[in-house]
């Protein structure tokens, strides 16, 4: 079976675009909507945010703090994770 080379080219381009896109988009999860001030603080801490599209999403289960997701990486600064870690540490000690 011969695949039209044009089709292959298009598919490749499409996938590359999508990959680029997902890499450039950064999701910031927070328990409440971040204000402009919060966001500008984030930009100073994480310079890579400047070059990407930041989408703020609300997740009340975080309790406090933020989670930054980009591509397959994540920076977890939420209270929920802290508490979970504490729970596991206590379990490990006892």
């Amino acid at each position: 079976m011969v695949i039209d080379p044009q089709l292959k080219e298009d598919l490749k381009k499409y996938i590359e675009e999508r990959l680029q896109d997902s890499k450039k988009t950064v999701f910031v999860f927070s328990p409440y909507k971040l204000t402009e001030k919060d966001l500008s603080m984030l930009h100073t801490h994480f310079p890579f945010l400047d070059a990407s599209r930041v989408i703020n999403m609300i997740d009340k289960s975080l309790i406090a703090g933020i989670v930054v997701k980009f591509g397959t990486k994540m920076i977890d600064l939420s209270l929920r994770t802290e508490l979970q870690n504490l729970k596991q540490t206590i379990y490990a000690i006892t």
Binding site: H45, T72, K73, M74, I75, L77
Partner: peptide, 8 residues
Amino acid sequence: IKAKAEEI
């Protein structure tokens, strides 16, 4: 606060 990027 230590900001560490984790692979997820």
